[in-house]
Amino acid sequence: MQIGSVLLGGRVALAPMAGVTDRAFRQICREHGAALTYTEMVSTRALAYGDKKTPRLLSLAENERPAAAQIFGHDPASMAEGAKIACALSGCAIIDINMGCPAPKIVNNGDGSALMRDPALAARIIEAVKNAVDVPVTIKFRKGWDDKSVCCVAFARMAERAGADAITVHGRTRAQQYSGQADWDAIRAVKAAVHIPVIANGDVFEPEDVPRILAHTGADMVMIGRGSLGDPWIFSRANALLETGVCPPLPPFAERIDTAVRQIELAAAQKGERVALLEARKHVNWYLKRERGVKAFKQRVCALERMEELYPLAEALKHAVEDGPPCI
């Protein structure tokens, strides 16, 4: 798989998810086979104004190359300047432009999927960013604004003409947000309409979904979002399935909890203990999503105040799940 001049070692990528795919989680996913990772989306306006918190979002892990930095905004000049800053701060190999985020606070500013309603402006943004940076530029967008304005094929053709090196299509409309079913037929139509690489996104929750969406859409690559939460092994298992036709099982529960703990340690090293433990509440819950009878442990995770409290809790959780009976 190749995007512009960037050669990738696989066909499965981790989606950028605001507030989720921080450097710690991306590092874990790369260790488990994600061929490409993206930073959380960063505002080009914040970059231009020198916001002090934004550069941290662009920090890449040591094992995270090649990687993409995702930017958002709606002013071509600001997007071009922000892309240059993002490249300089991160050392990324790819700039990805978010034209698909459905969040009201993003859309109401004219950013994200709002740009699907103004393809002429979207084209100027792509052209401006392409002229500003020396790395490949990719675009992430949706099926359309709503069911009455499905425009992904025309939008994809516009992006290709404007100079995009690859595109990612989420098979839902902005109106759907993350509800309903992703339309893989729409992604297939996009793939048939353009000559640049197409990355398929939407409803990939298990390793078996990866070969299914590739076969159905003809896409060049798959991007996994919510399916990776608490499950970085989805990448290695999907890779094995693509290569051998056999999907390995999940690792033992103890290994999964050790990975969760390591992710929190990595986050604490970057963000500090307090922030990492606050964010651990959602991440640990995701790692426990397949387990029954662990409600009491989830509540105890929410009460953690120091890293030293995490380790005995993790050991107790291992014994409760593996030795039984389950804790309730």
Rank of each mutant, 00 (worst) to 15 (best):
V20R: 08
A276F: 02
G180E: 12
V150W: 09
A320E: 13
N239W: 02
G144K: 03
K53T: 11
I213L: 03
A164N: 06
I167R: 02
P312M: 00
P66L: 10
A46W: 00
A69K: 00
P312F: 02
C247L: 02
K148M: 13
T21I: 13
F205M: 04
I234W: 02
C151L: 10
A154P: 12
T54P: 08
E31H: 11
E160G: 09
L241G: 04
P248L: 00
T217Q: 07
K52V: 08
G73Y: 01
S113V: 12
M79L: 07
M79V: 01
H319D: 15
A67V: 09
A280K: 01
E255F: 03
E279D: 13
G50L: 07
K271S: 04
G10L: 05
P248K: 00
A123L: 02
L214F: 03
G4A: 12
D185V: 15
L317N: 04
I224R: 00
G324A: 13
G324T: 09
R117I: 08
V190Y: 06
K84Q: 13
D209E: 07
C92W: 07
G82N: 02
T44L: 00
A175E: 15
Y311C: 00
T138A: 12
E322I: 07
R188L: 14
H283R: 14
M116N: 10
A269D: 10
I126H: 01
I85N: 03
R172F: 11
A192V: 08
I139T: 10
E31L: 06
H216C: 08
G82W: 04
N131P: 08
N201V: 07
G245Y: 05
D146P: 15
A219Q: 03
K282P: 12
M1P: 14
K318R: 10
A69P: 12
L304G: 09
M221S: 03
P16A: 13
M17Y: 14
A61C: 15
K52C: 02
R306M: 05
V321M: 05
S59Y: 09
F155S: 10
G272F: 01
